[in-house]
Amino acid sequence: MRYSLTHLKELEAESIFVLREVYAQFEKPAILFSGGKDSIIMTHLAKKAFWPARIPFPLVHIDTGHNFPETIEFRDRLVEKLGVQLIVGSVQKSIDEGKVREESGKNASRNALQTTTLLDTIEDHQFDACMGGARRDEEKARAKERFFSHRDDFGQWDPKNQRPELWNLFNGKKNMGEHFRIFPISNWTEMDVWQYILMENIEIPSLYIAHEREVIWRNNSWLPVSNYIKLEESDKPEVRKIRFRTLGDITITGGVESDADTLTKIVEEVAAARHTERGNRADDKRSETSMEDRKKQGYF
């Protein structure tokens, strides 16, 4: 095994390389930070890539207002610890300004509205590269994504006209008004992420760890009861021990029943899982190509 890296070390080295390329090739890059484990990993990797200097990018959070309170507490603590700038793009503000209209009805969510707020935030701050924690194993449209993904003037993704990406030569050249989405952890899987969190002992929001919570059974998963969802008569709130495999808005993120209350147990549970992690995300279930459609418009 001399002069050979483990798979996690090799993935880490690749991601650090990409983060440094972004710093070198762009003028105003930013990290898109959702408070989920993937953006936490990316931020951790950025810390490693530029040590002993600070992370040279601001964290950008597109805030739908429909957050888990734990996510926001975690975000604010992390920002303070790292000494980085936090920029919040508010979906509520986009709604108030009349740029987007809120969905109504039982399964209403602000997921799709984020795209407008995201693109506005990118334009307001003139970011030329936005790093996201998306992974290719998550979803079929993401499997075709580049590390350096070009976006036109309208922030749109053209999957049929992507730049070829060979070896580790990344082409971040663009015209005025265009920008790039960069995915430094493209090659990681859900399992890699958890193993890495365990190996590096990375702090994550408590939501990922099994806990008791008031939930309702909707769309085949346990949806947390909050002020942001409309309870119907048929909904029967009950307390269950659950954990979340992904974190999105509180209105669309379903939990799974679990006893995994340590990182080690989570890794074991992920290894035995028979469903994909996004299987509990209502935003992906709207149609067979909902991710591809949203991505073309400029979604994460």
Partner: peptide, 19 residues
């Protein structure tokens, strides 16, 4: 299967990464 066009045509066009 990947993108919409690929599914419709039943072919692979772009590189897809699998894990």
């Amino acid at each position: 299967d990947g993108l919409k066009d690929e599914r419709e045509q039943g072919i692979t066009i772009d590189v897809a990464y699998r894990y």
